[in-house]
Nucleic acid binder design. Structure first.
Lengths: 239, 239
DNA sequence: CGACGGATTGAAGCACCTCAACGGGAGTGG
DNA sequence: CCACTCCCGTTGAGGTGCTTCAATCCGTCG
């Protein structure tokens, strides 16, 4: 996150957020202990399995969420089944940036996911009493907007090779494998990658294979890779 | 704008914003007379001619702007000259949604444009004292984010015909010609349309010609058109 | 083991791009 | 007023990058 809170004070051992792994990243991070406790008590922790729908586009936007574990995708379907993924939500990300009555995108779990769920009405009231939270939400929205516009450049003007290279670099910054800092996991399917990059799965597969053949990356398994020549990959990503 | 202020009280005749045509649309709309006066006195009115650069990507984000007249484009260039336009700014729109130090996109005047210019530091201080303004900025950012994500669907998954149809419908809602409600102006060049839709100008031209040949639209001049069959155009836009 | 689903690879097609020529309105100068 | 030019837009012909369709591979799970 762009402007992440740092040096948060430790919470009491009985605080509901004591064990939260993403407190520094999440919007909640700007709240001090008592306010955070009141905030968290306003909403339960919910869990979704891979493939589950968290919110459906056109649903009433009755709740907002903070993702603590897992991975979500934001997507939209055209009438004939074509799908575009507008973005992925990682732990610490906020789901529910809108002032509209309905959600504009569907949010689904790409991996088993845990979220803090807050009724929107209550959330809005809480914001009104905590300017720091409102400010943080604005920062998050501004950051998401910049990311979405950057993705417009990718979808509008980049070649398949450039899209894949950009994507792999993004993943490398976000999805370090448990097996080591040099290795990165693909946390989503090729179909999800394709729908995020505006390509077909066959093209995604071919481009990854080509990067492997060119010794720019190495596939350590079907779900993980290692960057061999980062400089070359960055050149490819830029065009 | 999503949550536009309504029923604004009249301003005193000597108020600097008395003649503002976009007060209801702009972020300033949430300020009452005295606060608005203090706000406006913090920043001059500036003017740019067609083609002028208002802010350059990677420039220090030292100012923010509110567009009162004209049209801007937000764009980004790849090293080899490929360009993507991330969006257009119409009167009432706000320029400067970011918490970063530098701008991420270049903003240029597509038509002669007038803006209210505010030093960012001063603007931030003003926000801190006016929660309604902060809230409005969040609403604007959320709205822009939804629009950008909608554009991701267009760039990632729609065909050239669908892109053009979507674009014409958007224009029709935004750019009524002075010659009448039924007629819509193209306020930008074919090159700008192409770079916004991720197409080449030849493709834009061909698709517009095809819609004309199919009697879905009518070209009333090279810079304006009329929708003949809106239902058909909407079908085409959706796929 | 066999079956299944996701991923890869191959071959052919097509939507859009590239390159090139042409058209027409606006501005300029005679 | 016309001739000229310039710029933007349009139209045509051929090329190509990604898609489509299809077959095969491979890890997982019963």
């Amino acid at each position: 996150m762009a402007s992440r809170a740092v040096n948060l004070p430790d919470l009491e051992h009985d605080h509901p957020c004591f064990d939260c792994a993403v407190r520094e990243l999440a919007v909640c991070g700007v709240l001090e202990s008592a306010a955070l406790r009141a905030f968290k008590e306003g909403g339960p922790t919910v869990h979704y399995d891979t493939g589950d729908t968290v919110v459906f586009e056109a649903d009433q936007a009755a709740n907002v969420y903070s993702l603590t574990h897992g991975l979500l995708r934001l997507s939209k379907l055209l009438p004939d089944g074509r799908r575009q993924i507008a973005g992925f939500l990682f732990p610490g990300d906020f789901l529910g940036i809108t002032m509209e009555e309905e959600h504009a995108f569907t949010a689904e779990a790409v991996a088993p996911s845990t979220l803090c769920k807050f009724p929107r009405r209550q959330f809005d009231e809480f914001i009104a009493r905590h300017p720091a939270l409102e400010r943080r939400l604005y920062a998050v929205a501004a950051h998401e907007l910049a990311a979405a516009r950057q993705q417009l450049v990718l979808l509008g003007r980049k070649t398949a090779t450039e899209r894949i290279a950009s994507f792999l670099l993004m993943l490398a910054g976000r999805c370090q494998s448990v097996r080591g800092i040099e290795e990165t996991d693909f946390p989503m399917s090729r179909a999800d990658i394709a729908d995020y990059l505006g390509l077909r799965i066959e093209t995604v597969s071919r481009e990854i294979s080509a990067l492997k053949a060119a010794r720019v990356i190495q596939l350590t398994s079907r779900q993980s890779f290692r960057i061999i020549d980062r400089e070359r990959l960055e050149q490819l990503a830029e065009g």
